[in-house]
Amino acid sequence: MVSTVSNRLAAKRGLIDFILQRLTAVVLGIYVIHLTLVFALNGDMDYTAWRSYFNSGYSLLLASLTIVCVVLHGWIGMWTIGTDYLIGSPIKRAARVIYQLIVVFILAAYLVFSMMLIWGYL
């Protein structure tokens, strides 16, 4: 049962990754443009303006969505690089396990800390 589901997923993984990679890229693009506009339109932001922007519900949601997208986008890209270059010999495959663990660690740390940061738990 579990294996058929994972087989089906594996059979579509390229397609799913392809779509996710593009959707997340769009979100990242939107966020960058959005932030640039916020800074450009508000001139010199003092502490209160800064705070009220980052505490508004929509900016928190948009930032959270962006953080999740960075993690997904990063994982798909880094996984692809690993499976391009770190294949074949046992040494390379062992290196890939380590490489992927490092990537997961960095992305997970990024996810947890930036979420804590923007939601005010730090």
Partner: peptide
Amino acid sequence: LEKLGDAYSVFR
């Protein structure tokens, strides 16, 4: 098409 959706066949 069913045979082509995995991470390698086409999408590499």
